[in-house]
Amino acid sequence: MIPFSDIERDFAWAVLDGEASVPGPLVGKSGRATSGKTVTRSFAVYQNNVYASLIDALASRFPVTARLVGEEFFQAMARIYIGCEPPRSAVLLRYGTSFPDFVVQFSPAGSVPYLADVARLEWAWHAAYHSADATQLTLAELTEAGPDAEDITISLHPSLGVVRAPFPVVTIWQISGREGKDEPTQLPDGGEDALVVRPKLDVEVRRLPEGGAVFVLALKGGATLQEAASSAMQEAPAFDLKANLAGLITSGAIVSVR
């Protein structure tokens, strides 16, 4: 009698491996014992279910990444990722967090140097979609709370994420996310930083101005307004505090001020 834990282990291994032969003690139709071979197509249903469902999950989580390289390439890339890093939780909506890092390492995608940055932006979008909720401060509440304070600390929305990229990631994401025919596009020079936030139900992606990423990340890390502004100015002397604050306010990214 083979213990079930052994059966389960062999089964799981054969399902994930994809190439492995059918695990030992299976039987085919009408109960006849098989030496593994004659239930290959039946067993393949499980291999296919696991890979197809996870590839679909990744494709719908990284739709622009998939469009950039095409369906066939994306599916093949996702398949390898799944084999290397299968889900570790039954909460599938958390699956794919390490996919952008995988894309960086994946040499066949090396000819699309911005692919991993787009994937990071899409993961930030996905994380914001499922993040905790919070109510943003209205302009009136902000007016009451903030302006006279000497050293303000701003709490940002829990959905807020920042993606910094050496490529124009927001532009690429925007262009490739659009429906319709793709016209040849000359991309702008330099990198772009993205702010991703979901103040209510809709996730918004905004392009951050110079120094904005440092500023927002510092605030997110708990820095006071003053500290965040000086870090931003260190990186970008032209950092415009007023404009950045106004941007954060209109994004609905501020949930409290003290």
Partner: peptide
Amino acid sequence: CYGVAKAGENDCAAGKG
């Protein structure tokens, strides 16, 4: 900067569950 960028496909694609 800080303008809203919308990529059409993403609105409902929170990930196949």
